[in-house]
Each structure stands twice: as C-alpha cells, then as structure tokens.
Amino acid sequence: MTEGLKFSEVEIGDDLPEEVPDVSLSSVTAFCKAASHIFDRFLDHEAAQKEGFPGAIVPGIMSQGLLAAMIHKWAPGSSIRSIDTVFRGSLLVDSQITMTGAVTDTDDESNLVELDLAIIAEDGRTGVIGTAVVQLLE
C-alpha cells in the first residue's frame, strides 16, 4: 500500500510548505544538460546580460519541474493531472527564490484538488504563477 497524503486530510485553504529550491549556476547548468536545454542565457551571466537580462535566468521548464517536485514532496503518491504556469518575470540564477502553493478547490468524487502555485523572486516580484490539478490518494 502506498503511503502519502490522503484526500481526506486536505481542505481548501491549506498551504503547501514553502520551498526554497537550489537555482545556483551549477544546479541550473546540471538541469540544462540533463534536459538538453542548452542556451547561454541560462548558463552564463555575462551572455544573459548581453541579451538584456540582469543575469542568467532560470529556464521556464525548470521552474515548472521545481513546482512539480514541491507538489510531490507535499503529497507523496499523488498524481499531477495538469500543471499550468504563467511566466510573469525572470527568475535569476544564483538568487533566492521561494515557491508557494495553496489548495483552492477539492472534488470529493474524484479525489482531485486544485492548487495555486507561485514562485517569488528575491526582490519580492512574482516570477511565476500557476495552477495544478492533482489526484490524491483515497
């Protein structure tokens, strides 16, 4: 039997534990190599600045992956049915970013929950918002 967060243990308004993921240059570089997502703006601060960014930026697909990891850490054994993100601003490599989430709806017939997701940049800007639909254990 799989252990994890059960649907009955969740209600609207619950917060997911905040996460501060590692977006150091080495971590982002490792992700980009693993994902074959090789662009200078993610891997090199100077190259990113030449493109008009303040420094190297965290790839969108990595942001989405980090949010998915946060969900699974909160609810082991759950299944993410969909995840939808809106990129509102750059998240800088080698900065401190904070991920948040909250339960905004529940469906007791399907054990599905809807989540709000966000990633806050070090300066307080919201870099990413999103939602996810997650199936929890019975």
Binding site: I12, G13, D84, V86, R88, T104, D105, E114, D116, I129, G130, T131
Partner: peptide, 12 residues
C-alpha cells in the same frame, strides 16, 4: 494571464 475561477474566489 488569469488562472482563477470566480467560484473558487468565493470558496476561498
């Protein structure tokens, strides 16, 4: 760029 359902605002 909005991701909020109006009824979910009410529930919240």
């Amino acid at each position: 760029d909005g991701r909020a359902k109006v009824e979910n605002y009410c529930k919240w």
